Simulated assay, not measured.
Amino acid sequence: MTANPSHSRALRLPRDFAFIAVGLDALLFVINMAVLLLPSTPQAGQMRHAYAIPGVWIMLLAGIAMSWVLVAALSWSHARNALERQGVAHVALAGDARLRFGGVWVLAMVLNYYVLTPLFYEAQVLFMPGGQFAEVFGSSLRFSMGVAMVLQSLIQLTVIVLGLWLAARIALMKSRTASAHAEQLTPAEVPGGASPRRAVAMVAAAVFAGLQLWSGLAVARWAPPASDVGASTLLLTWVLPALVTFALAFWGGWLGTRPGLSIVRPFRAVASAVSAFLLVQAGCIVIAIAWLFLAAKASFSFYNGGVISFVLALVLLYMVLTVLLVRVTTRRLYRRYL
C-alpha cells in the first residue's frame, strides 16, 4: 500500500521545525556578526579586537549553543505534540506549516536581535561609569550590572519560548481548525520516527542542559571577560559540564525498555526538565548554605584543601541530584502512560 505523501510530509514536521528554527537563527546570527565585524571602520575594528578575547567569543558561542539546543528541543516538541494530539491526518492539512512557522520565527528573532538587544545595551550604559545611575549605586555598581544582565537573559529566554509557541500555533492553525470539527480526539500513536522513550529522554536532557548553560552564562556575566585564560581552558569549562549534564539528564529521563509508552507528550518532558532543574538548584543552594553554616559553627577552616573538598562534594551532589530528580519528575509525569 502506497503511503500518503501528505502524511509522510506531516510525519517529518518535528524534524523540519527543529531544522528551520535553528537554521534561521544561525543565518540571522551570521548576518548580524558580519554587519558588526566586517566593515572597515574604527568601530568594527574595536569590535573585532573585543571578540578576539577568548572569554568573549567563547561565551558568545556558548550562548548561541544554549539557544540552539533549546530552540531545537522546543520546536520539535511543538510539532510532535500536534501530531499526537491532533493526528497525522489533521496536521497534514496544514500544508504551508513550515512557511508560516519560519516567517513568525524570523519576526521573533528580529525583535530579539534588533529591538530588545539594543534596548538592553542602552539600559546597561546607564549603569556604567559616567552613566545616569552610576553615582546612585556607587560601590554596588557591579551588582546592579549583574542584575541587569540576569534580567536580560530572562527576557530573551522568554522571547525564545513565546516566539516558538506563537510560530507553531500560527503554523498549525489549519490543523487545529480541522480538529475542532472532530467529535473526539484521543492520543495518537505516531508511526515511525524516534522511539518515544528515547525522545522523552532527549527532550528532557536537552532542556535541562540548555537551562544549565543559560544559568551559567547569566552568572558569568557578573564578572568581566577573562583575558588571561586560555581558549582551551575556557572551552573545557563550558563544553564539558554541558555534555556531562546532558548525559546525566538523559540517564535520569530514560523510562526503561518495557513496552507501553507509545506517545511522547513532549511538553511533559519539558516540564519534567524545568522542574528538576529548579529543584536541583534549590537543593544545592540549601545544602551549600547549611554546610557553610555548620562549618562556621564548628570553626572549620577552608584552607589546606577545604575549599577543593567543598567544591568537589558540591559537584558530585549536583550530579547525583540531576539523575535522581530528573528520574523522579519524569516518571511522575509519565506515570499514566507507562
Score class of each variant (00 low, 15 high):
Phe120Arg: 02
Gln124Leu: 10
Met128Glu: 11
Gly131Gln: 04
Gly131Trp: 05
Gln132Pro: 00
Phe133Gly: 01
Phe133Met: 11
Phe133Ile: 07
Ala134Asp: 15
Ala134Thr: 08
Glu135Pro: 01
Glu135Ala: 15
Phe137Ile: 11
Gly138Cys: 03
Ser140Lys: 09
Leu141Pro: 00
Leu141His: 02
Leu141Phe: 02
Arg142His: 13
Phe143Ile: 09
Phe143Met: 13
Ser144Arg: 09
Ser144Pro: 00
Met145Trp: 01
Gly146Leu: 05
Val147Pro: 04
Met149Thr: 03
Met149Ala: 14
Met149Trp: 10
Val150Met: 09
Leu151Ser: 06
Leu151Glu: 03
Leu151Gln: 07
Gln152His: 03
Ile155Ser: 00
Ile155Lys: 01
Gln156Phe: 10
Leu157Phe: 15
Leu157Glu: 09
Leu157Ile: 05
Thr158Ile: 00
Val159Asp: 08
Val159Pro: 01
Leu162Cys: 04
Gly163Cys: 03
Ala167Glu: 00
Ala167Gly: 04
Ala168Asn: 10
Ala168Phe: 02
Arg169Ala: 08
Arg169Trp: 13
Ala171Pro: 04
Met173His: 13
Lys174Met: 09
Ser175Thr: 09
Arg176Ser: 08
Thr177Asp: 13
Ser179Phe: 03
Ala180Glu: 12
Ala180Tyr: 05
Ala182Gly: 04
Glu183Ser: 04
Gln184Asp: 07
Gln184Thr: 10
Gln184Arg: 14
Thr186Asn: 10
Pro187Arg: 08
Pro187Thr: 08
Ala188Leu: 03
Ala188Asp: 02
Glu189Gln: 13
Glu189Phe: 03
Gly192Met: 04
Pro196Ile: 06
Pro196Tyr: 04
Arg197Trp: 02
Arg198Ala: 14
Ala199Met: 10
Ala199Tyr: 02
Val200Ile: 15
Ala201Met: 02
Val203Asp: 09
Val203Phe: 10
Val203Lys: 07
Ala204Phe: 07
Ala205Cys: 08
Ala205Asn: 09
Phe208Tyr: 15
Phe208Asn: 05
Phe208Ser: 07
Gly210Phe: 06
Gly210Ser: 09
Gly210Asp: 01
Leu211Ala: 04
Leu211Lys: 11
Trp214Glu: 00
Trp214Thr: 00
Trp214Lys: 03
Gly216Val: 05
Leu217Asp: 01
Ala218Asp: 05
Ala220Ser: 15
Ala220Gln: 13
Arg221Trp: 05
Arg221Pro: 00
Trp222Ala: 07
Ala223Gly: 02
Ala226Glu: 14
Asp228Ser: 15
Ala231Cys: 06
